[in-house]
Design a protein around this nucleic acid. Structure first.
Lengths: 172, 172
DNA sequence: ACACCTGGGTTCATTCACCGAACCGACGAC
DNA sequence: GTCGTCGGTTCGGTGAATGAACCCAGGTGT
């Protein structure tokens, strides 16, 4: 990443993290991975991202150990991209940024509602679960909220409108 | 973003937030704002960012209500950029991303140590303060940690090595 | 009075990442 | 054999980032 994507002179872990997950499209790829998207074609359909960019980002995330390629069928050979433990730890940061957007940039109410299933609390504040503290993504349920806009009609968007847990593989 | 412009087709608050604070340099500008940087020249010296990009980003953040321009002297007229309430709410998301970087991308220990002053807890986990829950940035102290690299010698970097509270104006 | 410095920008040519359409190869279905 | 699908790679065009130069207002030194 010679020029344009790194922050060479910065002695800062935030800068290091941004070199990995701060590039254009990367946070949305990770958001999709958290809500259950795993396959190249599904990312492509859901994000409207150039194919070359998607391939480059997925490869970079695999190289960094944030995603892992897992074989799910052998004939023909097909892999899917799943979050590693390291990748799953990005959930709080991504979620909080999204919640900031819900509070300040969404005029018609929240687009999605997150519920902490073990206790039933809504996760819409600035920290973790108000009653439990820390939250594991697999314990969180997503469903569309009152501010959701239903313009997209691709199969992935439609399937994601079903309430489901984070990290649960998408079934179309 | 090392980045184009927007994420038009995405019905997602994370995408909306990224259009504002996801562009290249913007998260680092905000990080600097949290640790006390307020002046154009100080951002410039500390970030090694092209002047035109800095001017554009500051203007965009002011337009979005994340920063506000405040007059601090009249002859000659000079303004500084300070975080608004809306901007200060970005602290948890930025901090968590930085902490993820500390855990996974910093081999020599944390570069900076964050302490929640009211209770004395270190803030290095994946959520808020382990004893108090939510954290206000003005209650947080930053100081260099064992992994800090002291290569930068500009006045801003040197001044920031002094332990200080977040949002406290930089004094050089 | 005049030159010079500083803070806060703007202008401009070059470079580089992103874009999107086309192409490619492996495999299965008809 | 032809078609369709999945997971890419290639490639020309475009727009954003870069960095050096320039600009301007308002002190400051002499």
């Amino acid at each position: 990443m010679a020029l344009g994507t790194d922050y060479g002179g910065q002695d800062c872990s935030l800068a290091r993290a941004l070199e990995l997950v701060g590039e254009r499209w990367t946070p949305l790829i990770l958001r999709d991975a958290f809500v259950g998207v795993r396959r190249y074609r599904d990312f492509l359909d859901h994000l409207d991202i150039p194919r070359a960019v998607l391939a480059a980002r997925l490869q970079a995330l695999v190289d960094a150990g944030v995603l892992a390629k897992e074989r799910y069928q052998d004939a023909p050979p097909r892999d899917e991209y799943v979050l590693t433990a390291k990748g799953r730890e990005l959930w709080p940061a991504l979620h909080l940024l999204g919640q900031w957007g819900e509070r300040h940039l969404s005029d018609a109410g929240p687009r999605r509602v997150y519920t902490h299933l073990p206790c039933g609390s809504r996760l819409d504040g600035m920290g973790g679960c108000p009653s439990c503290g820390v939250v594991r993504p697999e314990d969180v349920e997503v469903r569309p909220g009152p501010g959701a806009v239903l313009t997209r009609t691709d199969a992935v968007s439609v399937a994601l409108r079903q309430p489901h847990r984070l990290l649960e593989p998408l079934r179309t």
